[in-house]
């Protein structure tokens, strides 16, 4: 099954309570996936020539200060960081290039799970309530966010196999469904330089879209191409630095509903996740058509 949610703010109120609203939405989807949960939030964009990195440690109480010092040396500049649960977000004076290799060489127990100017990803095993509490998601502000609660069908239940998946700058994807040609696509995409961390099918979808964006597609074009190249069942919600998109496969048996008011646009696997939002009762509410791309941009 799996449950997915997305919230795109069009007002101050939603922006300042983004984490709280997204948490309520994700908790409503708990029964659709008890294995792991995760969120991606777009907030506090970095200054020019800086990059935000979200890093995951296998244990709580990691020596994040040491990593910060090492990163400062590596980049030869000031590095700020913020700790949430067993993850930390670093703002580094430079690009993400080479940082995965650097982490592997200097802190092999850490994994980079997102990079960009505003994206942060938090994910862990367990129910949405546990994950939300662990990372204190409710207090987060931001412009848009995606969430996922997983019922694994296709690959292992670990934090690394949890959604959202990010395989490009400020890009992330959550997925309800399953892909059947992901092994072949992964091989092709690896040759093009996309780095994959797991054998998960949804990570391949994220990698596919990242690859298309690198080639110069915009998000809508990348999604349109995926209809031809990805074989399987899917409802995707995709986030970029300033945008948010939803798409279902041409058969469209995986559920999705979208609602919009003057203050927000939101998507979810089921309406009950949207019902927690202010003004949901009178929102314009519809089921996304098969193979049609719905996107919003700030």
């Amino acid at each position: 099954m799996c449950g997915i949610v997305g919230l795109f703010s069009k007002s101050e109120n939603i922006e300042s309570h983004l984490g709280s609203y997204l948490s309520q939405m994700l908790i409503e989807m708990t029964e659709r996936g008890p294995d792991s949960a995760g969120i991606a939030v777009y907030r506090n964009p970095t200054d020019k020539n800086h990059t935000k990195l979200t890093v995951l440690s296998p244990e709580d109480n990691y020596n994040w200060k040491k990593v910060s010092n090492d990163l400062s040396q590596h980049y030869d500049g000031l590095v700020n960081f913020e700790i949430r649960g067993n993850q930390a977000t670093y703002i580094v004076p430079g690009t993400e290039e080479g940082i995965t290799a650097w982490l592997y060489a200097n802190h092999p127990d850490l994994k980079l799970i997102s990079s960009g100017s505003s994206i942060e990803i938090y994910k862990a095993m367990g129910l949405p309530t546990r994950v939300i509490e662990k990372f204190n998601i409710q207090e987060l502000t931001g412009t848009h966010a995606l969430g996922h609660t997983r019922m694994a069908t296709e690959s292992a239940v670990t934090t690394h196999h949890s959604h959202p998946f990010s395989t490009g700058e400020d890009l992330c994807l959550v997925h309800n469904g399953s892909l059947s040609n992901h092994n072949r696509l992964r091989r092709i995409l690896r040759k093009k330089g996309i780095i994959f961390h797991t054998d998960n099918d949804s990570e391949v979808a994220a990698g596919y879209i990242a690859s298309r964006l690198q080639q110069g597609d915009d998000l809508d074009e990348a999604l349109a191409a995926s209809i031809h190249d990805l074989d399987g069942f899917y409802t995707f919600a995709v986030g970029t630095k300033d945008g948010f998109a939803v798409m279902r496969d041409p058969i469209a048996c995986k559920p999705a509903v979208i609602a919009e008011t003057d203050d927000w646009v939101a998507m979810a696997s089921e309406y009950r996740a949207l019902a927690v939002l202010p003004g949901a009762k009178n929102a314009h509410c519809w089921e996304p058509a098969p193979a049609k791309i719905y996107s919003w941009k700030h």
Binding site: A252, C253, P255, V257, C285, W286, E287
Partner: peptide
Amino acid sequence: TVRIKGNASQ
């Protein structure tokens, strides 16, 4: 009789 005033899903 079942009457839906809005839209119906799948």
